[in-house]
């Protein structure tokens, strides 16, 4: 689709228009993805818990998420009187924007019309995704609520701790592919094999760290509702709350994309078209996160930190060393 391939074009009004149009299409698409992720999460967990799940709005409850989003948008925008107003207002946006921006680095198909083919894609992903922490922390702080503060601090501590093993676990893949560009990594897997096999240890670290990074069960401490009511977004309502939710689910999608691209060969696969393969792999990842949520209790906050620093990080380091040594041997031999 040459119309949307602006990456190598000169920046003219026409290119800018095409960029904007592409961005809007992706945004709408992602909103749809998030809406139906929510729907499937509720359905799947409902079935796992012997319930029905949403089934009122539309056939099979298919419009439930849309109704929820509309409800949130129509709600009053409440700012607590004692809150730090500017920060309170801007925090959800700070949290949301990076979650949307990181999607740009993910190649969905071989021709990836909307994807910025960046040579430092992984670095870009990690760097931008950590900006969200700022939004969460600021939101927790600005709410002037003790639960929010505790939740915000917890998530800051947790996300920073887990970002390190997450990055380290990716290093093995980077070493094997010899590139930070996700497109190149997928291509390398097509030539060699899915990196899940040689990088199994790395994958384990990745999936645990990713779950923690997403604040999902069993690592959902920042929003531990039995302890902290709703964590950092206790005081948020209406569309600002929707921003946080949107950010959270976009990250689930983004991490699933990342996992599918780095360890399961991205869009590559026999018979079916590339985008379908990618969708299947991403769905499997998302399903895994939902499944975890239906199964696991929550881990304790001090155990969480110990686990990150004493287990995950050494494992990730071992993985890097092993990968480099083996790669050196193979290259030398």
């Amino acid at each position: 689709m040459p119309f949307f391939q602006w990456v190598n074009d000169a920046l003219t009004w026409g290119t800018l228009f095409r960029m904007l149009l592409g961005g809007i299409i992706v945004l709408l698409f992602l909103l749809g993805v998030v809406a139906y992720m929510l729907y499937f999460e509720r359905k799947i967990i409902g079935w796992m818990q012997l319930r029905i799940g949403p089934n009122r709005v539309g056939p099979l409850g298919l419009f439930q998420s849309i109704a929820d989003v509309l409800k949130l948008l129509a709600k009053e925008d409440i700012v607590p009187a004692q809150a730090d107003r500017p920060l309170f207002l801007i925090a959800p946006i700070i949290a949301f924007v990076p979650s949307f921006v990181v999607i740009a680095a993910i190649p969905w198909t071989a021709s990836h019309p909307f994807t910025a083919d960046i040579s430092v894609a992984l670095l870009y992903y990690l760097a931008l995704s950590s900006i969200t922490i700022l939004g969460i922390m600021l939101g927790g702080w600005a709410s002037n609520n003790k639960y929010s503060l505790l939740g915000g601090m917890r998530s800051a501590a947790q996300m920073i701790s887990y970002e390190i093993p997450l990055g380290m676990s990716l290093l093995g893949v980077i070493l094997m592919a010899g590139s930070l560009n996700i497109v190149d990594i997928v291509e390398a897997q097509r030539r060699f094999m899915w990196f899940i096999i040689p990088q199994f240890l790395g994958f384990c670290v990745f999936i645990v760290a990713a779950t923690a990074e997403l604040n999902r069960t069993p690592f959902d401490l920042p929003e531990a509702e039995s302890e902290l009511v709703a964590g950092y977004h206790t005081e948020y309502s209406g569309f600002r709350f929707a921003f946080y939710m949107l950010a959270e689910y976009l990250y689930v999608f983004a991490i699933s994309c990342l996992g599918a691209a780095l360890f399961f060969g991205g869009w590559s696969g026999p018979l079916l078209p590339g985008w379908l393969w990618f969708a299947i792999k991403v769905s499997a990842f998302i399903f895994f996160f939902f499944w975890l949520r239906a199964t696991m209790p929550r881990i304790r906050v001090d155990q969480l930190m110990t686990f990150s620093w004493k287990v995950l990080l050494p494992l990730a380091l071992v993985n890097i060393v092993l990968t480099s040594v083996i790669k050196y041997w193979v290259n030398a031999g």
């Binding site: 818990q49 012997l50 039995s226 949520r293 696991m296 209790p297 929550r298």
Partner: peptide, 16 residues
Amino acid sequence: YLLDLGAMSPFLYVFQ
């Protein structure tokens, strides 16, 4: 108790 500890499913199983 399990709901307090963050696991949701047992709550619904025991209700059956």
